[in-house]
Simulated assay, not measured.
Amino acid sequence: MLLAPLPETSFTGRLRGEIRPDRPLLVVAAEAEAARFDDTFPLLITGMGKVRAAMELTLALSSARPREVVNVGTAGALKDSPNAVVEVARVIQHDLPDDVLHQLSGAYYGSPLTVRPGPGLTLATGDSFIADSRTRTLLAERADLVDMEGYAVASVAQRFGLPVRIVKYVSDQADESAATAWPDAAATASGVLADWIGRHLA
């Protein structure tokens, strides 16, 4: 059976550099978030969303193992927060009704994942770009930040038995201003995250 070709505008993952056991693998969603990164470490650009992130990282790890997986990129703030680099301790899926699925099937499909021991920030991942105050308020009851890939990256890394870190630049307030704020913030994030990488992963 032949697979249908992807439409010409469909994104396909891009791996820059060679995955090696003595180097971390950087994972980002968007080209803009990695524009200022150098070639010190291998970099996987997955595209946006949970499915794309999980698929591209799984393909990359199927042939080589890094020292660790480091998901870097942008996240919206669910509680008022300055633009800064933060490391996540726990990640959840905000668009998967895991309790309902457990009642139906007896199994959990999206339990919270701990990526850094101890207290810290919770990241909510979902396949929606959050840009309205009502949704932001509801999500703030469960998490501190929101993105579209972190849970998927953590899930795949842990499934492969690899350490994983999630490091985000707070790019917007996940409210009505987010859509206009993100492009410029992503460009800023690239430089700030490149500096973080140089200071923390060498």
Rank of each mutant, 00 (worst) to 15 (best):
P5W: 02
P5D: 03
L6D: 06
T9R: 05
S10I: 07
S10A: 15
L15S: 04
L15N: 09
R16T: 00
E18C: 11
I19Q: 05
L25I: 07
L26T: 01
A32N: 09
L43A: 09
I45W: 07
I45K: 02
M48C: 02
G49D: 05
G49V: 01
K50E: 00
V51P: 02
V51A: 05
R52L: 05
M55T: 12
E56Q: 07
L57W: 13
L57Q: 10
L61E: 15
S62D: 12
A64R: 15
R65Y: 05
R65M: 12
V69P: 02
V72Y: 10
A77P: 15
L78I: 08
L78G: 02
K79D: 04
N83S: 15
N83R: 14
A84I: 06
R90M: 08
V91M: 15
I92C: 00
Q93C: 02
H94N: 08
D95K: 03
L96V: 10
D99R: 14
L101R: 01
H102C: 07
Q103E: 15
A107M: 07
Y108V: 00
S111V: 15
L113N: 00
T114F: 05
V115H: 02
V115I: 12
L121M: 08
F129W: 03
D132G: 03
T137S: 14
A140C: 06
E141Y: 03
D144R: 00
V146C: 04
D147T: 00
V153Q: 06
A154S: 12
A154V: 02
A154M: 01
A157D: 02
F160G: 03
G161P: 00
G161D: 01
L162C: 08
P163Y: 14
K168V: 13
V170L: 15
V170D: 06
S171E: 09
S171W: 12
Q173L: 04
A174N: 11
E176I: 15
S177A: 15
T180V: 09
W182T: 14
W182F: 07
W182N: 09
A186Y: 04
T188M: 13
T188G: 04
A189R: 10
A194W: 13
W196G: 09
G198I: 03
A202T: 15
